[in-house]
Design a binder for these strands. Structure first.
Length: 195
DNA sequence: GTTGCGATGCGCT
DNA sequence: GCGCATCGCAACA
């Protein structure tokens, strides 16, 4: 199947081009301000690094599809699938600015407007995205991605957030100076519980 | 602004 | 069983 031509290139090229794009679900729209690249077969930090499983299956499909996963027992995170079929790459949507449907987004989340979609799980919450949206084609329907020619600002790059594997790769991209970009927190070593 | 830590359930070894 | 592409809250600066 065709996929989405603008998203077919290498993930490191495509990821920064998603900055400034708009993800809309129903009446809520978010302008993306921070994203992170995952390059399946060569990336120890990627869900697809160890091959295809039930969870990561949509990463192996056509570009322009949403990959949603559930983590920490309570949070959802959303990615845009990128690259050709069988190259399981994706771009994690880390943060954005709510540009439409503010009332609906506020109803789903507590906190300041700036924080509504600041962080990958918050972004999903503000947009009402969950596992039922895994595999959704973003080119049509109720959940859509609209690309932009210009991100609307300078792009910065730096280390990925929250990973223990290959976090040092500078594969996180954000719009310089945007207040909605999530605060950087490196992955912490796990402490073993006593007993 | 920062750091520390518990919540909570599923995917994977 | 272990670990997680996280968050919110408390405490501190």
């Amino acid at each position: 199947m065709p996929g989405w031509p603008e998203l077919e290139g290498p993930v490191l090229d495509v990821a920064p081009r998603l900055l400034g794009a708009t993800l809309r679900h129903g009446d809520v729209a978010v302008r993306l301000t921070e994203v992170e690249a995952y390059d399946g077969p060569d990336d120890p930090g990627s869900h697809a690094y160890r091959g295809r499983t039930r969870r990561n299956a949509v990463m192996f499909g056509p570009s322009g599809v949403l990959y949603v996963y559930f983590t920490y027992g309570m949070h959802h995170c959303a990615n845009v699938v990128v690259g050709p079929v069988d190259r399981p790459s994706a771009v994690l949507l880390r943060a954005g600015e709510v540009v439409d449907g503010l009332a609906s987004a506020r109803a789903r989340r507590r906190g300041s407007d700036r924080d509504l979609a600041r962080g990958p799980a918050r972004l999903c919450q503000a947009l009402g995205i969950d596992l039922s949206h895994d595999g959704t084609d973003l080119s049509r329907g109720d959940l859509t991605l609209t690309l932009t020619d210009s991100p609307g600002g300078d792009v910065s790059a730096g280390p990925r957030v929250g990973l223990r594997q290959a976090a040092e790769r500078p594969w996180r991209f954000w719009l310089t100076g945007e207040p909605t970009v999530s605060t950087y927190r490196p992955a912490a070593p796990l402490r073993r519980r006593p007993g």
